[in-house]
């Protein structure tokens, strides 16, 4: 989505009724953010809508980007928000070899997740036990769900996007595009300043 550098377009204030609706939408999509929503989007603060190229809307609080949305697709978190609340989103993990492809804007392919270094839900028996066991979920994720992609050996996530393929299908096919057009570390959205 943001392979090229972008600059912010027109900025407008979000009406309070719309702001409430967005808040609801966020907590519906990401129930684990419920305990943090007042911190992320305090009721009294003014949310701004910033227009970006290719019909992307970015919601921001001052100079802090929070969520973005392509047309009527789901609201996706900015990676800086993901880094603040790393366990509040559905997570998957890619192997180390896939990182450089993701960071250059390539589509994420299934082998990056199905290889030994990757992690999918209900498949956490590779590293033995521990609290990390449940990090990648006990439920399969379906096509169309928002997913945050972590990376082998890294603490912070590197990609957020919408699944093009359910996790069950990935395990069966072990090939094909998994996430396309997401927001990754170092892309145009990441580098864009809001001041």
């Amino acid at each position: 989505m943001f392979k090229k550098d972008i600059s912010p377009g027109a900025k407008s204030k979000v009406k309070s009724s719309v702001q409430r609706a967005i808040r609801t939408k966020i907590t519906e999509t990401y129930p684990l953010l419920v305990p943090h929503i007042d911190e992320i989007l305090p009721k009294k603060e003014q949310l701004d809508l910033v227009k970006l190229p290719d019909r992307v809307s970015l919601y921001a609080l001052g100079s802090t980007p929070l969520f973005w949305q392509h047309m009527d697709d789901p609201l996706l978190p900015h990676l800086t928000l993901v880094h603040k609340y790393p366990t509040c989103f559905p997570l998957l993990r890619i192997d180390r070899g896939a990182i450089r492809f993701v960071l250059s804007g390539a589509s994420l392919m299934a082998p990056g997740l199905t290889s030994p270094g990757g992690r999918l839900p209900k498949q956490n028996d590779k590293d033995g036990v521990g609290p990390e066991e449940y990090r990648y979920g006990n439920e399969e994720l379906d096509e169309g769900e928002v997913v945050v992609i972590e990376a082998e050996g890294k603490e912070n996530a590197c990609l957020v996007g919408v699944l093009r393929m359910g996790t069950k299908e990935m395990k069966e096919k072990k090939k094909g595009v998994v996430v396309e057009g997401g927001h990754y570390l170092g892309d145009g959205l990441w580098k864009m300043g809001l001041d």
Binding site: T80, H83, K84, E155, N156, L185, G186, W190, K191
Partner: peptide, 18 residues
């Protein structure tokens, strides 16, 4: 738990592990 504070690289802007 408060939001996690992540350090970002002053040169390339990514988390330094990247």
């Amino acid at each position: 738990s408060p939001a996690k504070q992540v350090i970002y690289c002053g040169i390339c802007s990514l988390p330094p592990e990247y």
